[in-house]
Amino acid sequence: MNRLLKTRELWLALGILAVIVLVTLRFPRFSQPGNLLTIFNDTSILMMLALGQMAVILTRSIDLSMASNLALTGMIVAMINAAAPGVPIPLLIAGSVVIGSALGAFNGILVWKLDIPPIVVTLGTLTIFRGLVFVISGGAWVNAAQMSQEFIQLQRGTFIGLPILSWFAIVVATLVYLLMTRTAAGRAFYAIGVNPTAAVYTGINVGRTKFLAFVLAGAIAGLCGYLWISRYVIASVEVAGGYELTIVAACVIGGVSIAGGIGTVAGALLGALFLGVVNNALPVIGVSPFWQMAISGTAILVAVVLNGRSEKTKGRIILKKAEAA
């Protein structure tokens, strides 16, 4: 099974490489290191969000409220910054993680204690959180002039040649990787995704594990709230509208099974990166950005067809190996 996953990620990486090579053939400057780093930086936020969503999907749940959580948390920290520019930015970042976690915990509590299906809960909070952005802001924007310079500039600084935003993604990815592969909590995400009943018998509290996954997704969404607002320097009700499905798309393309239990950090990162590369390549090769939506839809469908195939052969891994040999 591990081998199977590895090949899937390999194929995805090759796919990304193929897109880069094809575009480079016509526009050599596309694959210059500087541009590739820009793409990585542009995709950092989506990569982090995809990791949070993956944790939730692993437990057979789904979090449709992440984009609204991002918008709400972003608006709150932007308003705090506009009202009190003196508040240190690291404190604001910590605050965004706390607010995001709290919103995620709200989802998690409803799933854990009341046993309401996650899709219903997050469908509700998707609209509630976004509505709250309007309520707290009164529909007004917080724009660049109202934000402090540190608020805007922090993530634009560089450290060992990489923008701070990219470092955020690298650190979050490392932490999630360690959580998934080196801790009992991480293994529990996979365990209840593969077989919830068996997980109970091994002493895993299914509800609490789901709760933790939602808190993790919320914390990441909150952090990305600050990063998104300070990157695009505008906080409004429409921030990241409809982005929840892009996040799910990144996971699906990355081989995370919506049925739970299957998915890796590398896969989710590559899924997000694939969308990032495609979106970045379209304007370069002169395709109207209006094609973006249809292309990501097609990518999701192709990915899910491929995922479905490899998941189906799960019972015949020995044969699969023999075939590959």
């Binding site: 209006f290 973006q292 990501s296 839809g297 469908l301 899910v304």
Partner: peptide, 20 residues
């Protein structure tokens, strides 16, 4: 295939064609 993923995909695809 799971309907939730398929219809998230066709959701982008169908509206994407409208945008094209």
């Amino acid at each position: 295939l799971p309907s939730i993923v398929v219809t998230i995909g066709t959701m982008s695809l169908f509206r994407g064609i409208a945008y094209i």
